[in-house]
Nucleic acid binder design. Structure first.
Lengths: 141, 141
DNA sequence: GTATTTGCAAATCATTTGCATAAAC
DNA sequence: GTTTATGCAAATGATTTGCAAATAC
């Protein structure tokens, strides 16, 4: 379906369309679960055991640099990734570290005032708390 | 000036007021530069070479858990810390990774809707771009 | 006095790198 | 054919942990 689109996007970014790189990109486009690099490696390698951990990491770096993939850093935990599709914000679970999409909402002008000489590239909302799975089991910690 | 306040806050969190822990907390309260754990260790140890790297890390973890310190994760780089004082948002520089405070702005209700069964603890704005120092030198990358 | 914290060095975890081989363009 | 990417294993960087000795309460 978008095999061609992926190839095109990679080409335009000066990246060759190798099976390993394609697989990472396709996987991220098909899953909005914000997987970690390790999870992506597992999944991609299970379908076609031709990739290596290092290559997965290198490809993720390349894709982030090319602007095709977004990296979400969470405290103390491994980074998580998602294909840049429709704009959205993120909800990060305090308990399990999962990252979920939250419907996009334009940050109003007043919030952008105090930026001074800084050059703004993007502005994202990060919600934190307990995800729907963890909320009921709230007890420890 | 707030030596007493620090001691009190630690006590209320069930944390003993050791010189090393106190030093970390006092340093964070006196500097809003969002230092990394390594920077905090350096600074604290320079004034009084009695602490160790491990203890600094452990104390930072304890202070974050106690809710006295906030941890800011940035992609690929070391975590940065700040004492929870006045509420504020963060600006993270794409180039140098520095984290700066941005005046607080209450996120309007509409943005808080799509949260479903999730339990919201906090909501923060993350601005990304080039800091005032890096903006003029924009060239490479 | 007792429970917590420290410091050390070793361990772990996520991620990157060097380099020879293989594949994309 | 040339340039870029791969896979491996080893390196790095950040952070954590085990444990005996020290210290806050």
């Amino acid at each position: 379906m978008d095999a061609k689109a992926i190839k095109k996007a990679l080409g335009e970014s000066g990246l060759r369309c190798t099976p390993q790189r394609y697989a990472v990109m396709a996987f991220l486009m098909a899953h909005n679960s914000h997987p970690t690099a390790a999870e992506i490696f597992e999944a991609v390698n299970q379908m076609d055991p031709r990739s290596s951990r290092a290559t997965t990491y290198n490809n993720l770096r390349d894709l982030v640099q090319a602007g095709l993939v977004r990296e979400v850093a969470a405290e103390g935990r491994a980074a998580r990734f998602d294909a840049k599709g429709m704009r959205h914000h993120h909800f990060i679970c305090d308990r399990c570290g999962s990252v979920e999409d939250v419907e996009w909402y334009d940050v109003p002008r007043p919030a952008l005032r105090a930026l001074g000489k800084r050059v703004l590239r993007e502005c994202e909302l990060i919600f934190r708390g307990l995800c729907a799975k963890c909320a009921p089991r709230y007890a420890s910690r």
